[in-house]
């Protein structure tokens, strides 16, 4: 096992930093149903961490625990080494955790640009009166943040649709806009809930490229849930495998590929 501050080198030769977020013995129950049972793992700075598992394994619940939307009954979440206090959902974003959703959760009535700009809201502090007059700080902030937003729009290649209402966009582009909205807040951890769900091969390749580029260019720490095994194995540096709320594997993609418990969970075990 690695020490918390120790760095390691990935299979493709990148150096990964210390622990950003650590889950310690997390247990999450909904009434009598145990969604997550005694799971511990960590997310390190600059890595792409995947959480995989069959349907109903508790992956999305895990992501919600990471994002602070669910509060586990047992165990604790250490963020930058400190236990995280119980936060309201809107306070989590201020901590620097951004996420995308399995079912796209964009603001349909707004343009792409407005959606992306909304992601900058924690960086803007001008009050209601200043914004009403639109002079001085309010205008300056708007322009500065617009520049940041345009950089991300440029990066994700959605310039041509920046003034289009989101409701008119096809599915693949919506996913990209959602990624832009999460990315523009300059998060210290970016959570992606099934970024490739419902895409064709070409769109998946595009999305994979963007995820790798984001990680490479901005050094963003990414935690993602994905069903497509090929994608997960290619993208991620380390993988957590869950099944029925328990962790059954944790390690590099090649470790996971040879892990008997994982193979059993995915392919089934012969009963003799």
């Amino acid at each position: 096992m690695l020490d918390n501050s120790e760095s390691y080198v990935t299979e493709d030769g990148r150096t990964i930093g210390g622990v950003v977020m650590e889950m310690k013995n997390i247990t999450l129950r909904f009434g009598g149903v145990v969604a997550i049972k005694d799971i511990s793992f960590d997310i390190r700075e600059g890595e792409i961490r995947a959480i995989i598992g069959p349907n109903g394994a508790g992956k999305s619940s895990m992501l919600n625990v990471i994002s602070g939307f669910y509060v586990p009954q047992e165990g604790e979440v250490l963020f930058h080494g400190k236990p995280r206090p119980q936060l309201r959902p809107y306070e989590v974003a201020q901590q620097g955790i951004a996420r995308t959703f399995q079912n796209i959760a964009l603001f349909e009535g707004m343009t792409v640009l407005d959606n992306v700009m909304t992601g900058r809201l924690n960086k803007m502090s001008s009050g209601l009166l200043a914004q009403a007059i639109w002079r001085g700080k309010a205008e300056k902030e708007e322009i500065e943040n617009r520049e940041k937003a345009e950089k991300i729009i440029d990066f994700l290649e959605i310039q041509h649709i920046r003034k289009t209402p989101v409701s008119r966009l096809p599915y693949g582009l919506k996913k990209r806009v959602e990624l832009a909205r999460a990315l523009v807040s300059e998060p210290s951890i970016l959570l992606l809930d099934e970024p490739m769900a419902g895409m064709n091969v070409e769109e998946k390749e595009d999305m994979s490229r963007f995820i790798l580029d984001v990680n490479d260019e901005f050094g963003t720490t990414i935690a993602l849930i994905e069903h497509d095994m090929g994608v997960v194995m290619d993208l991620s540096d380390r993988v957590v495998v869950m099944d029925y709320g328990k962790k059954i594997g944790d390690g590099t993609p090649s470790d996971i590929r040879n892990n008997q418990a994982v193979i059993d969970a995915y392919l089934g075990v012969a009963h003799d």
Binding site: P89, Y90, Q94, G109, M110, T118, L121, Q131, E142
Partner: peptide, 27 residues
């Protein structure tokens, strides 16, 4: 001025999808 700036975006975010708005950081 209010509706073209950040305040307007917060309002519209609440209108379009309040849960997502909250997770993004809208109080």
């Amino acid at each position: 001025n209010l509706t073209r700036g950040m305040q307007g975006r917060k309002w519209m975010a609440i209108r379009d999808m309040d849960i997502a708005a909250e997770i993004i950081g809208v109080n």
